[in-house]
């Protein structure tokens, strides 16, 4: 039963200049209720991995460097 990829536009953007995940910070990854933020091993920064955002804001509010920006998911805008 083969499957195809079904891309979605990212609604949580991470400023890679500000993100300090490579220094061990995991605050946003830890607080996300739906667990959609992951460490991108390619650049050591955080990125959104699943289109499962509740636009609730703990990730943005708890980020120590204000690196995250949450937008309302496209389907709801």
């Amino acid at each position: 039963m083969p499957t195809i990829e079904n891309p979605s536009v990212v609604s949580i953007t991470v400023d890679t200049e500000k993100c300090i995940a490579e220094k061990g910070c995991r605050v946003c990854i830890d607080v996300c209720p739906t667990d959609i933020l992951i460490l991108d091993l390619a650049n050591g920064k955080v990125r959104m991995a699943y289109d499962e955002c509740w636009y609730c804001l703990p990730c943005e509010h708890d980020c120590p460097t204000q690196a995250l920006k949450v937008e309302i998911p496209y389907l709801l805008r």
Binding site: P33, T34, D51, E52, C53, W54, C56, P73, L75, L76
Partner: peptide, 13 residues
């Protein structure tokens, strides 16, 4: 109605 699975009133967790 948006069709967005996680666009719920309740925390979707």
């Amino acid at each position: 109605a948006s069709g967005y699975l996680f666009g719920t009133y309740e925390n979707p967790t």
